[in-house]
Amino acid sequence: MAPAMDTILDMRDVIMGKDEAEAAVATKARKVDRDQRTTVGVPFVEEPRMICREVNVFYGDKHAINNVSIDVGKNEVLAMIGPSGCGKSTFLRCLNRMNDTVASCRVTGEILLDALNIYDKKVDVVPLRAQVGMVFQKPNPFPKSIFDNVAYGPKIHGLVNNKTELNDVVEDSLKKAGLWNEVSDRLDQPGTGLSGGQQQRLCIARAIAVRPEVILMDEPCSALDPIATATVEDLITELKEHYTIVIVTHNMQQAARVSQRTAYFHLGDLVEVGPTDRIFTNPRHQLTEDYITGRFG
């Protein structure tokens, strides 16, 4: 890993050093990056919860993710941004092996969750997905009651011993997801009858109820109105206290609001990673700058 780090640091010096020739150098850096497939910024953290090294994903012949190495820190929110089709959702789905359900998908490289390689042949995906929960782009509550939606995970994983405990878990999860006050009097109503924002919070409550360590969110607010989005964003900030969160978003303001670190993906490459404020105020890579200033995307 050391030579790669050196290259990154060298390049940072190069880019940061000469202000006049910034554009030219950045273009050159981009060329170098495309050839060497390295990442600008520091993708690694002190206290990682998940460690991804040289991850490649193929859909049949298509090379969807290109040698991506990145850490996800404890109790942080990592935002993944990038234009459509850049592979950020694909990468996210690798983190709890949701891509296993896609027949043509093949993943190489290492992804560690607390030192356990999740792509190891011995690893069972069922407990893994209980540890790494997922919230999807479109709210997808089960066609069951609100209570049963949240109780689903605890029931199948045997996390509770009796009805009282189950009630507690459901109440606790709904409270954490900020939905309790709205639904406490109608837990037996179908979850599909809630509004879009409520449904998404129900899905978050459902994910929390399994007590995961990491929560993956795939554009969780893309189907929501601004008010519901604000509620979910507040929720993400609160959840950060207990969970590690990786969020894919198309909304750069959202990434800026909720995340501590931001990763910019482009055409399957991890182009730049850094603290969120730095990425949005002072992007080092030309592609990142083009994207966040709205020149494409």
Binding site: N96, T101, V126, M134, P141, Y152, C203
Partner: peptide, 15 residues
């Protein structure tokens, strides 16, 4: 039955 239902369930670690 929509794939989203299956994904939701698998995402919670259901078999």
């Amino acid at each position: 039955v929509p794939q989203a239902m299956r994904d939701g369930s698998y995402g919670l670690g259901a078999t």
